[in-house]
Write a protein that binds this DNA or RNA. Structure first.
Length: 560
RNA sequence: GCGGGUGUAGCUCAGUGGUAGAGCGUCACGUUGCCAACGUGAAUGUCGGCGGUUCGAAUCCGCUCACCCGCUCCA
């Protein structure tokens, strides 16, 4: 039998993720938050190496997106891409979240089945019941159809429970504790029973805890429980509903509500983008998979505003460029994919026909499947219209485009007023870091460390290490001078390590695990001919270069 | 929220009712001329937490927390 083959695969994948998590702890990349107090579910702290890695990824995004406008790429309109940054508050006026649909749409009470454990939105249960396989089958034994309600004869229903019912809805109360009571009720019924009532009789349900049995198995549902994914707090000293505020579940809304401000106070014009990085919070039901689904996480979001006619072009532009961007950071190959959404997974703000695609990475815990790194969505003018309506500003939130509209007598356009459409490339920074970690993790039984972190030099938290081969003959002094020079020149990009302890092999091995791409070793020859050994992390190759050429060598390798 | 698994030193783990352990790592000193070398020494433990049973609990029981896997959820 091959029954255990999938388990073996799963074990191998799990093991690999466990190894990555162990390395993250061991090398100071990521720690469990509040660890000395037993931890807290869904929260993670970055250690010294991890904080720098995360900063390097965030800086790469900020530099390439904001400062360089997609690396100087030309947009579909033939002009440079213009992006300006903002940094908005985590806590905003609660009306923001009413307008965005986060307060209304995601605070629905949910019910769990005590028998089959499935979870349902309470207000969907009656509808789900009417479509469920066991109710449909029960309706099939209908005897009469009067006044548009389905009636079922009590004894026919009893027969049904003895045959198909016990298989289709094994959770029903008629198969559990109150069996005799229910059977008696059905036998004594002289008139046919309406289907909706029969469902409740078979499930032995009253108003408490739920008026309905489980649509899946007929089991008992728990009472509806609140299920809002937004964290909340209160402003001021008095904790009442009037002062209730929410921690933002996405950074996007901070951009939309400042759209008018940015247009009014800077010389940007549509098409242009507003970008920001920052923390967002979601009280996830099940935080899982290391930092992949955390309750506190950081986003890197762009809201790119364009004329409604140009959305398709800009959507394609962003989707393709964002994919290339991730690939340029070393997430190349089969582990990265671009996937257009199916129609049924479109978000509430996305209309039919509007594009949404995900850039996905094959994490060890999702393999052979993929997990989302970044979503590129055509949000249409949904958000701006929502805020126009809820804020009462109405058409004042519209953008006046002086470059469009019919021409006046003097040949100038008269202008056009419209709600711009929005293309949103929204990336998860923590997920990006996690993907980079997984991609970099490279087992190598042949080397002393058994594993090395093959970070792209641009992301590597340690940029270079300087070692004296041995701690004597003036080598430490030369090495320290080189270290100081490199810190001056490269310290803003990442750490420059210096180590003179223990054997040179052990120091190389440590740098392998930390993912430092280059080690410069001061040896006897340095003292006589002024050259040093460069040791390459990925190839293990060693070459000699001049001591005074080390800075330029590193600059070239780091792409600076 | 449900089910299964795990939790002992920084890491990997041994320890099934009777003194808290090993390897690796870390640190110090010496040695050491290119890939976790060697010698000597040292530090490091709420045995996840709380409670119970017991003369005695890392070990047995209950509850709980965290992580992993599978459901469920994921704007």
């Amino acid at each position: 039998m091959t029954d255990n083959a999938p388990d073996a695969t799963a074990d191998a994948q799990k093991k690999s993720m466990d190894d990555i998590m162990a390395l993250c702890k061991r090398r100071g990349l990521i720690y469990q938050a509040s660890e000395i107090y037993g931890g807290i579910n869904g929260f993670w702290d970055y250690g010294p190496l991890g904080a720098q890695l995360k900063k390097n990824l965030r800086d790469a995004w900020w530099n390439d997106v904001v400062l360089m406008g997609c690396n100087g790429k030309t947009g579909p309109n033939g002009k440079p891409v213009r992006i300006v940054p903002v940094d908005t508050c985590i806590i905003q006026n609660p009306k923001v979240w009413e307008a965005s649909g986060h307060v209304g749409g995601f605070s629905d009470p949910m019910q769990t089945c005590r028998q089959c454990k499935k979870l349902f939105r309470a207000d969907h249960v009656p509808d789900l019941l009417s479509k469920s396989s066991w109710v449909c089958d029960l309706a099939g034994v209908t005897e009469k159809d009067e006044q548009e309600s389905i009636l079922v004869d009590g004894t026919a229903a009893l027969t049904w429970t003895k045959k198909k019912g016990s298989k289709l809805a094994p959770g029903l109360a008629v198969f559990r504790d109150q069996a005799n009571e229910i059977i008696a009720t059905l036998k004594s019924s002289t008139a046919p029973i309406p289907l909706t009532m029969l469902i409740r009789i078979l499930g032995a349900t009253t108003e408490k805890p739920s008026p309905w049995p489980c649509p899946n198995c007929g089991g008992e549902l728990t009472e509806p429980r609140e299920f809002n994914l937004m964290f909340f707090s209160y402003t001021g000293a008095v904790f009442d509903e009037e002062n209730k505020v929410y921690l933002r579940p996405e950074t996007a809304q901070g951009i939309f509500i400042n759209f008018k401000n940015v247009v009014d106070t800077t010389r940007v014009g549509v098409p242009f983008g507003i970008a920001q990085t920052g923390k967002a919070f979601r009280n996830e039901v099940t935080p899982r998979n290391f930092t992949f689904r955390s309750r506190e996480f950081e986003q890197m979001e762009i809201e790119f505003f364009c004329h409604p006619d140009d959305t398709a072009d800009w959507y394609a532009f962003w989707r393709d460029w964002r994919m290339k961007w991730w690939q340029g950071l070393g997430l190349a190959g089969d582990n990265l994919q671009l996937r257009e959404h199916d129609r049924d997974e479109l978000a509430h703000y996305a209309k039919e026909g509007a594009g949404t695609s995900d850039i996905e990475y094959r994490f060890p815990f999702t393999a052979p499947g993929f997990g989302e790194l970044e979503g590129i969505a055509d949000r249409t003018d949904f958000d701006l219209r929502q805020h126009a309506e809820h804020s009462g500003l109405g058409d004042k939130l519209k953008y006046f485009d002086p470059t469009r509209g019919e021409l006046a007598k003097n040949g100038q356009p008269k202008g056009e007023r419209y709600f711009p459409h929005v293309i949103e490339p929204s990336a998860g920074l923590d997920r990006g870091v996690l993907a980079v970690l997984c991609e970099a993790y490279t087992p190598d039984p042949g080397r002393p460390s058994k594993v090395y972190m093959k970070f792209h030099p641009r992301l590597s938290p340690i940029k270079a290490a300087v070692f004296p081969l041995v701690k004597k003959d003036g080598m430490p002094e030369v090495a320290d001078k080189l270290r100081a020079e490199l810190v001056q020149r490269f310290g803003r990009y990442g750490a420059i390590e210096y180590d003179e302890k223990q054997s040179i092999g052990k120091r190389y091995a440590r740098m392998d695990e930390a993912g430092c791409p280059f080690c410069f070793t001061i040896d006897g020859e340095t003292l006589t001919d002024g050259t040093v050994t460069v040791r390459d992390r990925d190839t293990l190759a060693q070459e000699r270069i001049a001591l005074d050429a080390v800075g330029d060598f590193l600059a070239e390798k780091l792409g600076l």
